[in-house]
Amino acid sequence: MTGQAHTGRPSKLLRNLSSKIASIPMMLTAVVIFLGGTVWTVIYSFTNSKLLPRAKFVGFDQYERLWSAPRWIVSIENLAIYGIFTLIFSLVVGFLLAALMDQKIRFENTFRTIFLYPFALSFIVTGLVWQWILNPEFGVQSVVRSLGWTSFTFDPLYNSDIVIYGVLIAGLWQGTGLVMCLLLAGLRGIDEDIWKAARVDGIPMWKTYLFIVIPMMRPVFITTLVIIASGIVKVYDLVVAQTSGGPGISSEVPAKYVYDYMFQAQNLGQGFAASTMMLLTVAIIIIPWAYLEFGGRKRG
């Protein structure tokens, strides 16, 4: 290696050779484990693998069964409801909290800690805590009833129609603090002079936020969006801890379908088909966005 460096100009490939060598393990991991594993899963989703993978291809059978399974349809609907509301509420509430924090209030550190604290808990703990809070015999309902409103009913986890909102409350409680912190960091990155200029021009504060500050925070918002979105797609442990999919199948989510069919039902093919559908959904959202985001930058 050193001999080469003395004899002539190092080729482009050999520049920063040591750092390239250092990154080989990670590249291999990415290619073999992530990409390889993904491709393998997609291929085997066209087989009738049961407990062990078998290369016996059955075409789209697994997918036909998947889309005719009521439980899968319920899972997709739940993910859509959970996803849309989580996105909206965690961004809106998170930004409002961040903006309030940014008003040079007293004890900011204390508040920040309090709001971020739920994020330090795992989804399992969050789920169990909210299972108790929303339990009609021990939680909110019994507290309100003991105050005198005896007809008060609030049992989202035991009502099929609204159970997913019970899960949503817990998810928001856990995740909003992080969104607030990320956006607060973004707000702090805005130059003081911009605020001063806006004030000189007589622009009201809400307009400054909406039309100047938020557009400037675009990169922070994108990071936040990616973090929230990945959290939505993989939601699993929260549901397991809080409702285990119940009552009946009304709070099932796709990730749980994948696990249950791969391991409990010993039907790998069906689980692979479901996880491929999850991948496809993510790809449909990510690819156009990545194209706009990164493709556009090269041109500009």
Binding site: K50, P70, S160, G245, G246, G248, S250, D260, Q264, Q266
Partner: peptide, 19 residues
């Protein structure tokens, strides 16, 4: 029955009993 059919049956009856 195979574990797969048992699981499908579980999905059906847990939905039936809750709904």
């Amino acid at each position: 029955l195979s574990a797969d059919s048992q699981k499908q049956k579980e999905d059906l009856f847990s939905e039936f009993f809750a709904n």
